[in-house]
């Protein structure tokens, strides 16, 4: 490991340069959110300016930002809770009482992720319309739950697998019922894993754009759709767009930073650890 501790100076420089470049668009957006609309489009671009918070006040006053933010919160939390409720019992059964079909079931669950959303756009749109779920939060909760369910089952399954079987067996000897076993022994042990699974599910639901754009108009529109409304050519509200975007991505950026490790496991279905 001698070489690792003594990296030449240019490695440090290069590493920071790459990180800076990749992060630059986010940084630029962040800076722009504190400019006035005039300063945001000024030539030459301004790096030094008098910061203002008026954009953050404006997006709430003019565009009722918090309505959309609340939709995002309800949809991503709702979908995550529903997915966990369906996934935890399934993962429990599959990891502790596997049958011949368990492996096939898991692979089949993942294969549902391969169905391209656009392939069923029309049926889902018509189903949602017939059931009165178009432009409702419930509709998006259901869709996000189903989209993320395979990943959630998969991740919790892999975390349950890491719980030592001896602990459960000892508990069972003491006469614990399945429910007690699940609740008092397994869940506390697997809690960190379940938490990171929940984080991943929240991140994916929060950033989901295809169904949000196609199935909502206003009432249930989450932040992804709200931000998209800034793409219309009339009026260039860059500073306001930046403020709205900064607020929209901030919580997810933090969640992402916290869960980067587990993310790899979830996103590659455990193929890379």
């Amino acid at each position: 490991m001698a070489s690792k501790s003594s990296s030449p100076w240019w490695i440090t420089l290069l590493g920071w340069l790459v990180a800076g470049l990749l992060c630059f668009p986010i940084f630029w957006m962040f800076i722009t959110s504190f400019k006035t609309e005039v300063a945001a489009v000024a030539t030459p671009p301004q790096l030094l300016f008098k910061p203002t918070l008026e954009n953050y006040a404006d997006i709430q006053a003019r565009a009722s930002y918090f309505t959309f933010a609340w939709n995002s919160v309800v949809i991503s939390l709702g979908a995550t809770i529903l997915a966990l409720v369906l996934a935890i019992p399934a993962a429990y059964a599959m990891s502790f009482f596997p049958t011949k079909r368990t492996k096939g079931t898991l692979v089949w669950m993942l294969s549902t992720k391969m169905l391209p959303a656009v392939g069923v756009l029309m049926p889902i749109y018509i189903l949602a319309r017939e059931m009165g779920l178009l432009d409702t939060r419930i509709g998006l909760v259901i869709i996000n739950t189903l989209i993320n369910l395979p990943i959630v089952v998969w991740m919790i399954y892999s975390f349950f697998k890491e719980v030592p079987k001896e602990i459960l067996e000892a508990d069972r000897m003491d006469g614990a019922s399945t429910w007690q076993e699940l609740r008092h022994v397994l869940l506390p042990l697997a809690l960190p894993g379940i938490a990171s699974t929940a984080l991943l599910s929240i991140i994916l639901s929060w950033n989901e754009a295809f169904w949000s754009l196609n199935l909502t108009t206003f009432d249930a529109a989450p932040l992804t759709s709200f931000i998209a409304s800034f793409s219309s050519p009339q009026g260039l509200f860059w500073a306001k767009l930046s403020a709205a975007s900064t607020l929209a991505i901030a919580p997810i950026l933090i969640f992402g930073w916290i869960s980067q490790r587990q993310l790899v496991r979830g996103l590659t279905f455990g193929a890379v650890k």
């Binding site: 800076g20 990749l22 992060c23 986010i26 754009l213 975007s245 992402g256």
Partner: peptide, 18 residues
């Protein structure tokens, strides 16, 4: 490293508009 992986967590409509 945290800075470098950040773009992945930005919602697609935001990154496209930036």
């Amino acid at each position: 490293r945290v800075l470098a992986i950040s773009p992945f967590f930005v919602m697609p409509t935001v990154s496209a508009l930036i």
